[in-house]
């Protein structure tokens, strides 16, 4: 059975809900502290929260940590949600930067995102529009030029990536991106919070399913 490590930095706070979500797929999932080894993990989930209190910039200190270098070298599939996405950009594993929302306020709401054509393990969901919650202060994606590795855009219920569907001012409605090799995916929405009936949507399961498929190889 595959083992997924949910990485916990000081201040990470989505670790247990993520573990529960992953376990519901029948895989082994456990919390791995940022100063532990990752050799025995088959897949890595960078969970949301406020690593190191998000001082300096969201994800900045975690992004510079040793474990991120280990993760980069490991060759394992990675999914970073929310703070996990911010950490991946800060670690330069995914391009761009996540700036404060244009409202300069935290935003927690349900959004729709549509998976675009991409080179990552999420490509099998291409064209799907998913209902997933967001909860962040810095989700306003920015890059010097339009990135090539977009995997998801905020959209209307019908899949239209219109400006009115953009919750945070993100460039081109970008909700998620992958690394150049497609092995790592980062996104602001929280798939682990839309996994069970009680949560109001189970669309997040599709994302996790695709991630686990990549883990299983």
């Amino acid at each position: 059975m595959s083992t997924i490590g949910v990485i916990r930095f000081p201040g990470t706070n989505n670790e247990w809900e993520t573990v529960r979500a992953l376990q519901s797929f029948g895989v082994e999932a456990k919390v791995v502290e940022h100063n532990q080894q990752i050799d025995d993990l088959d897949g890595i989930w960078l969970a949301g929260g406020f690593s190191y209190g998000d001082v300096l910039r969201a994800g900045a200190i975690a992004g510079a940590s040793r474990i991120m270098k280990d993760i980069s070298r490991s060759g394992r599939p990675v999914l970073g949600a929310c703070n996990g996405f911010q950490i991946l950009t800060e670690a330069d594993l995914i391009e761009g930067a996540l700036l404060p929302n244009t409202t300069t306020r935290f935003v927690c709401k349900w959004i729709y995102m549509t998976i675009t054509e991409n080179d990552s393990y999420l490509n099998e969901l291409q064209g799907s529009t998913l209902r997933i919650p967001i909860a962040h202060f810095e989700g306003n994606f920015w890059s010097e030029s339009t990135p090539e590795n977009i995997v998801a855009k905020y959209s209307t219920r019908d899949g239209d990536a219109a400006p009115r569907a953009n919750p945070n001012g993100s460039m081109d409605n970008i909700a998620g991106l992958s690394s150049n090799d497609g092995r790592m995916v980062g996104m602001m929405p929280h798939p682990e919070r839309s996994c069970f009936k009680h949560q109001g949507s189970t669309d997040g399961r599709k994302i996790i399913q695709a991630f686990l498929k990549e883990v299983h190889g």
Binding site: A97, L99, P100, N101, T102, T103, T104, N140, W142, G169
Partner: peptide, 9 residues
């Protein structure tokens, strides 16, 4: 060259 939401507000 980068948007600065805090500055805008």
């Amino acid at each position: 060259s980068v948007t600065n939401p805090g500055g805008e507000v």
